[in-house]
Design a binder for these strands. Structure first.
Lengths: 168, 168
DNA sequence: TTAAACTTTCAGTAATTATTGAAAGTTTAA
DNA sequence: TTAAACTTTCAATAATTACTGAAAGTTTAA
């Protein structure tokens, strides 16, 4: 397989994976394209490479910047903006975990806390099941939250430090 | 808040979370409904509670069974099928991890392996970046895969056993 | 057998989500 | 200032995904 075809395949695979995880396909593809580009690219180049419109490219790039996965660069003496993706896989994973935690896990935790405190008749099976399920899920979610927090902050901790080395 | 309203809220929250993770909203809601039901429910009851059609209910239930989250039950002397959800949060998490690994991670791993082996000019920055990115992602993905495998199989391992206790 | 009780399928439609492209907005340099 | 070079916005439209409901299929019991 030659490089161009391999790139193509990588972009497709990344796009598919993204869309299976609730990230829009184009966003994942733009990210993939930038990940395999040694140099920062312009909006024009991205539009051309992926055959997408200017509007789409612009919005997608802003989203990627919002996720902390891509940054704008400026070249001396040029008006154009260039876009560059961080290539450190561990940073990427961290950044995604961080954002999803903030955007999705935290709001759910708030609701679960509220629901864990609903009072009811301890004899009623309906109530007992509700209460147990919500409390259990809340507990699990809180632990995931705490763990993510530790992971995201404290690469210096001896414990997580050694876990990380296993993954890098 | 009273029980009925609390249930409603839980179903909504679970549905929203599901849809953010690429699981369809109705499927997550049916699951939520079953999670807070002490008894197994019939298709009729689910249709009524969530105001969905028979076709939708049927397909969704089959999907949930396919994910290993729900099981069919039969009551003596009755023709109707009843549906019951496993309420152990750890089992739920395990089951979801297991299925997503099989359905999404494994196919991507296969492609990444292939792409890691693409040969090229070691002097070409295009090739170097492609190769490094793909190799790094492949490494990370493989480690995630291995870790999941261990977690899923070996709750008996002293190491994961102790990690699990933190979460339960 | 037959028919009642139930489950499954799927073509058509509705709802949601993503994309385009052209117009409006902004910045820079002369 | 002006206008060229560039970025952003957003209403219209396309593409995708989910849902309905009625018809077809299946199982059971008499």
């Amino acid at each position: 397989m030659e490089l161009a075809a391999a790139k193509q395949k990588f972009i497709e695979a990344w796009g598919k994976l993204g869309s299976e995880w609730g990230i829009n396909r184009t966003m994942a593809q733009v990210h993939a394209l930038l990940l395999v580009s040694p140099e920062a690219l312009t909006t024009e180049e991205i539009m051309k490479d992926l055959s997408i419109s200017r509007g789409n490219a612009n919005m997608t790039l802003r989203d990627l910047i919002g996720w902390g996965l891509v940054e704008k660069q400026h070249k001396a003496g040029e008006r154009k903006e260039y876009f560059y993706a961080d290539k450190d896989t561990w940073n990427i994973a961290r950044q995604v975990a961080k954002e999803r935690r903030k955007r999705e896990l935290d709001p759910v935790l708030k609701i679960l806390d509220e629901l864990s405190n609903v009072q009811g008749d301890a004899k009623d099976p309906e109530f007992k099941t509700f209460n147990k399920t919500v409390t259990d899920i809340n507990k699990l979610a809180k632990n995931v939250d705490k763990t993510l927090d530790t992971m995201l902050k404290a690469e210096e901790s001896w414990f997580w430090g050694s876990i990380f080395k296993m993954f890098k």
